[in-house]
C-alpha cells in the first residue's frame, strides 16, 4: 500500500475537506492510505501529492468523484437503529399528516421528507416502506421522499435499489424482504411500488442549499460526525432554514446538537430524541 508522507497529509486533508466537507484527522494516516491507495496506484501515482495534482487538473472531475466515493462511508442498514423509524411511524408522520391535511377533501395532503445523507438508500427505502404500511389511501397524499448524498457510487446503488445478501439481511425482517424486494440472482432488488415513491439526487451538504424547499421531516444521521464543529454549526443552521416550523429533525443516536445549533430543541418520545425548532 502506498505510504502517505507527513507533508502530504495536510494538503490531502484540505483537499478532501474542500470537495466533500469531510474532515479526516491528520494523525490517522491509515485512513488516507486504506481509502486512497488503490486510486493512486490505479492512476500510476508515485505519491499522494501526485494524486492531488492529477485530481486538481482533471477537468472532468472523474478523479475527484472517485476520491469522494472512497472517502465517504457507506455503512448503512435497513431500519438501522429501530427507534427513529418507530418515531416516524408513531409520532412524526401522524402529526405531520394531521397538520397538513387540507380542509377541502379534494386536495392532496403534501408531506416532504428528506434523507440528507442517503448513502446507498436503505434509510429512505425504510421510510417509504413505513409510509406504504401506515398510510391506507396513498393517492390522497403527495409524498416527496428525497435522498441526497455526495457519493456518485452510493447514489447509483441507491437508485438501482439492489442489495446483496449481507446488505439486506441485517435489519430487514423476512416479511418485509419478501413483500418489498425481488430476488435477482444472489441479490435483492427493491420493488417498483417502493422505488417509485422516492428520488435521489447528488448533493454536497457543505454547499448552500438551493432548490430544495422546506421539509416536514429531515433525517440527517451519522454524517455530521465527519465534519468539524464549525462546519456542523453551518450545516444545522441551513437545516433549520430548510425545516418547516413544526417539522422534525432526526440525527444519529450518538450525535448531539448541544453547542452546535441553539435553534433546535431536543424532545423525547419514548426512548428516542428528536429535534424541533424553538
Amino acid at each position: 500500500m502506498l505510504k502517505i508522507q507527513t507533508g502530504e497529509l495536510k494538503v490531502i486533508a484540505q483537499y478532501i475537506h474542500s470537495v466533500s466537507g469531510i474532515y479526516l484527522d491528520h494523525s490517522k494516516s491509515y485512513l488516507f492510505e486504506t481509502r486512497l491507495s488503490s486510486i493512486a496506484e490505479k492512476l500510476g501515482c508515485a505519491s499522494y501529492q501526485e494524486l492531488y495534482n492529477k485530481a486538481r487538473s482533471d477537468g472532468s472531475k472523474t478523479i475527484e468523484r472517485q476520491i469522494v466515493d472512497a472517502i465517504s462511508t457507506n455503512e448503512t442498514l435497513f431500519f438501522r437503529d429501530k427507534a427513529p423509524f418507530e418515531l416516524l411511524q408513531h409520532k412524526m408522520l401522524p402529526e405531520i399528516i394531521d397538520a397538513r391535511t387540507p380542509a377541502a377533501p379534494n386536495l392532496k395532503t403534501p408531506v416532504k421528507i428528506w434523507s440528507a445523507a442517503a448513502s446507498t438508500g436503505q434509510e429512505l427505502y425504510s421510510i417509504a416502506i413505513i409510509i406504504k404500511e401506515l398510510v391506507r389511501d396513498l393517492p390522497r397524499y403527495q409524498f416527496t421522499l428525497l435522498g441526497t448524498d455526495i457519493s456518485d457510487a452510493a447514489l447509483a446503488q441507491a437508485s438501482y435499489g439492489k442489495y446483496n445478501r449481507f446488505e439486506i439481511e441485517r435489519g430487514l425482517d423476512q416479511r418485509s424482504l419478501q413483500r418489498y424486494f425481488t430476488l435477482f440472482g444472489d441479490s435483492w432488488k427493491i420493488k417498483d411500488e417502493i422505488r417509485s415513491m422516492v428520488s435521489f439526487r447528488k448533493y454536497n451538504l457543505m454547499q448552500p442549499f438551493t432548490g430544495l424547499g422546506k421539509f416536514d421531516i429531515i433525517f440527517c444521521r451519522n454524517v455530521a460526525i465527519y465534519f468539524t464543529l464549525e462546519d456542523r454549526k453551518v450545516l444545522f443552521n441551513k437545516i433549520a432554514d430548510s425545516l418547516a416550523d413544526d417539522g422534525f429533525l432526526v440525527i444519529g443516536s450518538t450525535e448531539s446538537l448541544t453547542g452546535v445549533c441553539p435553534r433546535f430543541v431536543p424532545k423525547r418520545h419514548l426512548r428516542t430524541i428528536f429535534y424541533q425548532k424553538s
Binding site: S253, S256, V265, P266, R268, T272
Partner: peptide, 17 residues
C-alpha cells in the same frame, strides 16, 4: 457500545436542554 453511548448522550442532551 453504540446503544450505551446513545443512551448517555441523549440523557445529557435532555439535561443540558
Amino acid at each position: 457500545t453504540e446503544s450505551a453511548a446513545s443512551e448517555t448522550i441523549q440523557n445529557l442532551e435532555m439535561t443540558v436542554a
